[in-house]
Design a protein around this nucleic acid. Sequence first.
DNA 1: AAAGTGATCATG
DNA 2: ATGATCACTTTG
Length: 170
Amino acid sequence: MRITKKFYIRPATETAPLLLGKFLCRNAEGNVIKRRITETEIYFGEDDTACHARSGVTRRTWPLYEQGGIAYVYLCYGIHNLFNVVTGEKGFPQAVLIRGVEGFDGPGKLTKHMKIDRSLNAVCLVGSNEIWLEDDGFLPKFNATKRIGIDYASEHDRNRLWRFVAEDIT
DNA sequence: AAAGTGATCATG
DNA sequence: ATGATCACTTTG
């Protein structure tokens, strides 16, 4: 069944591991794709030097400050659309980056396959018929590791174990 | 190892 | 208006 609002309104630190195994669902022009999430990463607050919100509210980062349950999609390196799930209460910027789904490892690859782009930025995952998440009760085992691709962040933030990889989903 | 690619943000 | 930066992927 579709994941409801309540699931999203809690800290990304809680939500990120729970998102593993959930189905990311996308309806693009009547074509529905559903795939289990295999890899997630936390971006948490203005004090997290790896988080986009480290510079406060801007034209790009405003969705991070909304109440949990919406999408945050932005263009990375001029080429790749990266998909995040905004979590928590309104006013505290945080999100979970979806880094992989079954069959498609890599945050840019999965968005390409599922036709996710910036037109879905700030879309409500609870109410949209274009993109949403579903839960069938499956809870995979997982490992927590360091985040990837954030060399510019402080050592302290680089060392946080804020990346989660499911073991039993390929 | 390194390019490709363009929105975003800080600076002037 | 301009330039540096960047939560990546692919190619050699």
